[in-house]
């Protein structure tokens, strides 16, 4: 208790003086790091460009209106591709994430010492690398197109789905599993009757959640050549057709909003 006596009065302080000191010290370090980083930013920035940017922005905005609505009709194909990339990619991811999650969960992994670290490494590598980077690699390897996008989304999502799923597996009610074990059930049967029913709602929720994120991510994969509406965006920017760019942005916006709404509805229905 940080309680001191001063002239017979109790003086209350929130922290002891040592804690106080440590607290200040932590703040000092944090501020110093930030100031140092800001300085690095400042060195690398052409402030003239930044000062000029409001004029640039209004100029760009002017050139973006009115949106060229006629362009919309050529976008249906790319939108369809975008949705397919997200959906098929999510499907691949959940199929692969399911076994990985069981290998990574502490209570279902066959070996805590050997198998679990491998599964965790798969999860962390898949999660650390952005789907755009995955797409970049795949476009270099298997060529540009929708397939690269599908695989990129799949690879990126395995880690995400597997991580949330293995956390759900670690939180299951163990007595239900015990009850199934006590009947003399085999390992696969315990999985099927004792564990899977418990994680099924979480599994469905995670898949839909990830699908929603993937719609958003697959709109930009075209920037590196992996198909979908991003290809059109890239082309329109390169040809400085700003009125087309604004149409594409509005389309992306509405796709994202709709997918978010769908995913919220579906998750609500599941839980």
């Amino acid at each position: 208790m940080p309680l001191k006596m001063n002239n017979g009065n109790k003086v209350w302080q929130r922290r002891t003086s040592k804690q106080q000191l440590l607290n200040w010290f932590a703040w000092l370090i944090a501020v110093a790091i930030f100031v140092y980083c800001w300085q690095l930013v400042s060195e690398k920035t052409m402030w003239i460009f930044v000062l000029d940017s409001p004029a640039q922005a209004s100029d760009m905005a002017e050139r973006m209106v009115p949106p060229k609505w006629g362009y919309l009709s050529t976008l249906w194909g790319p939108i369809w591709d975008t949705i397919n990339i997200a959906t098929l990619g999510t499907l691949i991811a959940i199929v692969l994430a399911f076994p990985v999650a069981f290998l990574a969960a502490r209570n279902t992994t066959p070996s805590v010492r050997f198998v679990r670290p491998v599964a965790l490494f798969i999860i962390v590598s898949s999660r650390s690398i952005n789907s755009l980077l995955w797409a970049l690699m795949l476009v270099t390897i298997i060529g540009p197109g929708v397939l690269a996008g599908v695989i990129a989304i799949g690879l990126r999502s395995i880690g995400f789905c597997a991580k949330l799923l293995y956390e759900a597996i670690e939180e299951i009610n163990e007595t239900q599993v015990e009850a199934i074990t006590a009947t003399g059930a085999s390992g696969p049967q315990i999985l099927n009757f004792g564990i899977v029913p418990q994680i099924l709602p979480a599994f469905a929720g995670i898949s839909v959640f990830r699908w929603d994120i993937n719609i958003r991510e697959s709109t930009v994969l075209g920037l590196v050549g992996a198909g979908g509406i991003g290809l059109e965006l890239n082309a329109s920017i390169n040809t400085v057709s700003w009125t087309q760019v604004s149409v594409i942005l509005l389309v992306i916006l509405s796709t994202v909003v709709v997918s978010e709404w769908v995913s919220a509805k579906v998750r609500h229905a599941i839980i």
Partner: peptide
């Protein structure tokens, strides 16, 4: 929230020029 980081970056680069400031 709706636009992916990369699209924001694309426009930031157009406005502020190449370099980390646009990314930030």
């Amino acid at each position: 929230r709706t636009f992916p980081e990369i699209i924001l970056a694309l426009f930031a680069v157009k406005l502020f020029g190449f370099g980390p400031f646009a990314g930030i």
